[in-house]
Simulated scan of single mutants.
Amino acid sequence: MTCPRIAVDAMGGDYAPDEIVAGAIRAQAELAAEIILVGDPEPIQRYLDEHESGIKLKIVPAADVVEMHEEPLIALRRKPNASINVAMTLVKKGEADAVVSAGHSGAAMAAALLRLGKLPGIDRPAIGAMFPTLLPSKSVLILDVGANVDCKPRYLEQFALMGSIYSQFVLGVEEPKVGLLNIGEEDCKGNDLALQAHSLLRDNPRISFLGNAEGRDVMSGQFDVVVCDGFVGNVLLKFAESLGGVLVQILREELPKGWRGRLGTALLRPNLRNIKQRIDHAEHGGGLLLGVDGICIISHGSAQAPSIFNAIRLAQEAVEHQVSQRIQACYQASSVVGEGD
């Protein structure tokens, strides 16, 4: 297939446009993808000129940006030429294959729903995020991590199926094991949502359901996909991100203390770099919005160049593995969609 065309919201995020453009430059150099920068051409071009990389990137002008304090739907309607709107429109028109944004996450999701729409059979899209596990080279996909604060049981069932498809075809897991985040392992534990969702997941032949996953099980490596509502998932995501940052900071402060520490730190530098890569959320780039008719990666608002590069890489992989098409095909063949409130 031809190189995926990735539209990057150059104006979204705390460090836009400089860090966004820096990540895009690296992606254009290292990935088999065509990067399209969407935003105010003047600061984007100024950074490109200062960088002097020799890499040419296409710029699509967008006059406005949705600020973090704005209400998403109101801002999107008031600013039709906002960078996230323009980026989504490129996908809608077939001029791009995916969108990456580190801007207002609510605006990115709303723009995806308004411009791209939901896949047939999907009640609510979900944001999936990768977490590290105790097993080397293995991550677990958690969804939803913020798109849906309130959920019905069938939403969690759909999250599990979408997550399984992503895990199988993008991450290469032959038979993804699914867990339901809960307060206990026993089938009888949890609130009404958890109890009803447990029944749906257990009875769905398309889902390899292992049962409930307690908080301590999420990063154990026994699950490939863990589902929950967006309220719990977002709390879990923010806690995991902060914990990773705390661990890295503690290592930086404590290891170099004393001459033994300085010597040990020098000797262990490659190991410490590997530790940071395993627990640093920037290595995963962001979350994939599953369930919309297109590929959309929602990165962290504090994303810098390495995170943007990884978000673009994630978008490229999702396009190449036809994630949206596989989800749609699965639901077209499934009779379970829409059952079980």
Rank of each mutant, 00 (worst) to 15 (best):
28 Q>N: 04
29 A>N: 14
31 L>D: 10
32 A>V: 00
32 A>L: 02
32 A>N: 12
33 A>F: 06
34 E>R: 12
34 E>N: 12
34 E>S: 11
35 I>D: 10
35 I>W: 01
36 I>M: 13
36 I>Q: 07
37 L>C: 11
37 L>R: 05
38 V>N: 06
39 G>T: 03
40 D>E: 14
40 D>K: 12
41 P>F: 10
41 P>V: 08
42 E>I: 09
44 I>K: 11
44 I>N: 08
46 R>W: 02
46 R>E: 12
46 R>N: 08
46 R>C: 08
46 R>G: 08
48 L>C: 13
50 E>N: 13
52 E>L: 08
52 E>S: 12
54 G>Q: 08
55 I>C: 12
55 I>T: 11
57 L>D: 09
57 L>P: 03
57 L>E: 09
59 I>A: 07
60 V>Q: 13
60 V>M: 07
60 V>C: 03
61 P>L: 07
62 A>T: 02
62 A>L: 09
63 A>H: 08
64 D>P: 01
64 D>R: 01
64 D>H: 12
65 V>C: 10
66 V>F: 02
68 M>D: 07
69 H>D: 14
70 E>C: 04
71 E>A: 15
71 E>C: 04
72 P>F: 02
72 P>S: 10
73 L>V: 15
76 L>N: 07
77 R>W: 03
78 R>K: 14
78 R>V: 05
78 R>E: 14
79 K>P: 11
80 P>F: 07
80 P>I: 06
80 P>C: 08
81 N>D: 11
81 N>L: 11
81 N>V: 00
82 A>P: 01
83 S>K: 02
85 N>S: 12
85 N>P: 10
85 N>R: 05
